[in-house]
Amino acid sequence: MISEILQTLPQVLVDGLTLGAIYAVIALGYTMVYGILELINFAHGEIFMTGAFVGVAVLFFMSGAGWLAVMPAILALLIVLVVTSLVTGVLGMGIERVAYRPLRKAPKLITLISAIGVSFLLQDIVRFITEWKRGNYIVTGPQLFDSKIGLDFSSIWSHFNDAILKTSSVILLVSAILMMIGLDFFVNKSKWGMAMRSVAQDRDTAALMGINVNKVISLTFFIGSALGGATGVLFAMQYGTINPYIGFILGLKAFTAAVLGGIGNIRGAMFGGLLLGVLEMFASANLQKLTGGVFTAEYKDVFAFGILIIVLIFKPEGLFGKAVTEKV
């Protein structure tokens, strides 16, 4: 059994990190907003979903205009990512302005309900528009990258099988890593990143320093939502078909990843996301073997969330707690 698990390990890692990168970037949006407002922005999963649809819409448009045929796929992706990030960034800022800011002094539970309301609203708006434009709310966008790369793991160690890596996974991983490094750098090294950290730590005192707290909160929503939307594009590219409900379960898992890493902690969210992705893929590949067929791969979430519960029982503040890096 061990040898079977070992054989599939390279593929599990490749798939797990790909999925985990998606969780990680979405988790950043949850953790940033939580850090600054102590609010679980329940609508963040829907921002991700909206990003996937906006991205596909832009791709359809570019394909219809004949641009896709003449420009390199990477350039097309870049355009889609930029347009989508701007759209979802502004959307996230708007949601905060309309649905959360008026409730800033209300109990957190009220704001949470407002966030859940926004979630349903976004699902239905996206569904309505997509059905109206394409006749079906489940869509498969044009694929930019469909080649695969074989990874020769067996020559590294004979117990490993080779793994297959889709080109889109490489692009997804590289983009996600760039987004994470970029954000980490922005938050820890730039002036506005410092402003975000200060607002997260003590809003009133940040205002005394001349910082417009509302502006910083808007900025936080913009960045978190832009990253979430861009991840939606990467998701659509990786897994092909999307529907308006993908944001719910993915958002829940990304939120879980944020909690696993220590909610409010940016590096924790990145690590939590990658870990959850790998755990989930590991369970999906091996659960049947490990349990002698009692549990099939469908139970992968039970395995992943079981580990989460165990971690949280022993370390309720999450793996990275608050002590390691700045809370935002």
Binding site: M194, R197, S198, Q201, D202, D204, T205, A206, A207, L208, M209, G210, I211, N212, V213, K322, E326, K327
Partner: peptide
Amino acid sequence: QPAHVTAKTGIAHVPEGRRIFPRL
């Protein structure tokens, strides 16, 4: 005038309890 505007126009306030940003 909101606090962040006043802060930029020449009044600095050292609040009660010092309010240092603990993780900066």
